[in-house]
Design a protein around this nucleic acid. Structure first.
Lengths: 154, 154
DNA sequence: CAGGAATCATTGGACTTCCCCACGATCTTC
DNA sequence: GAAGATCGTGGGGAAGTCCAATGATTCCTG
């Protein structure tokens, strides 16, 4: 029995699957999987990589500040930083100016791991966008950036 | 003309946030939230809405087939259909041709709820893509569709 | 300066998605 | 008929996201 022909008629499901939210969700799931697999060799998850990068950029920074930048829940930030600190990539130091805060800094090992992960993540993203020409990739990124930055000004 | 960054990139976080996987993930999260809030009034979750729509399109259809179309785990499909059936939106009937299968069909109430949800979901997506002109929205959708359908042709 | 509001890090719990395994019933193929 | 695959249904678990609450601390305001 041959498998059914590809459905191209207008219908409820086609309607759903043509919704931007559905499509962008599927693409996001694939991109997440690709990058996660790429940096898995470094022992880091997506958010751990992102937090490591954010820490490297913003120097000594409080956890809450990291959470705001990356849209990560404070609870999850604790676990992420625990893992990064156990791996020796990041350091938590009491902030002398505000004893509520932890001043998070990147260790040299953290910077080395970050450099490796950045290359791996970039390769994974090239794979994700392989169907598009470089010019189309720029267009896609520009549109996504506008959609992203419009509601939550940054 | 963006060229690849050297290993010692000056801004790791900006690098991460400019990755397509990150950007598309943020947009997907926002889209998911918008649509979820929109159809929450109908008592449906995202996947329940999608399954309802898929059932409406493919007429009497087996659960496994629905799961394959929507990339939903068979275990989760059971729970989704249980909820839809308890809400009177969907009907499970033994398939006379293959008594292993359940022929899932949409009830009239299901079609009514689907129509309402479709309008709500569409409104939420318009809100998501509001920063773009209609033409830009079409471009974005076309690019996303190509990225989505390239690796797993369906 | 005192007291209330806000912030910080942390913990707890709930929900969702995805994965592996297993079972009985049923269909397909040899 | 027998072997293997498929279907629906469960159990259990890992991971990600979100909300609520708590004790310590800082900031704001009167």
């Amino acid at each position: 029995m041959p498998k059914p022909l590809s459905p191209s008629s207008p219908s409820p499901l086609a309607h759903i699957q043509s919704l931007p939210s559905w499509l962008v969700g599927r693409v996001a799931a694939r991109g997440r999987g690709l990058v996660a697999d790429a940096i898995a060799g470094e022992g880091l998850k997506l958010m751990q990589h992102a937090v490591l990068a954010a820490t490297a950029e913003y120097g000594p920074v409080a956890q809450a500040e990291l959470g705001r930048r990356l849209a990560v829940d404070p609870k999850d930030m604790v676990g992420i930083l625990n893992h990064l600190q156990d791996a020796g990539l990041v350091l938590r130091t009491p902030d002398p100016a505000d004893r509520r805060k932890n001043a998070v800094t990147v260790t040299p090992q953290g910077e080395a791991a970050l450099a490796r992960c950045a290359a791996l993540a970039e390769a994974a993203n090239e794979q994700l966008l392989a169907p598009l020409t470089p010019g189309e990739q720029d267009v896609l990124m520009g549109l996504l950036r506008r959609v992203h930055e419009a509601p939550a000004s940054f």
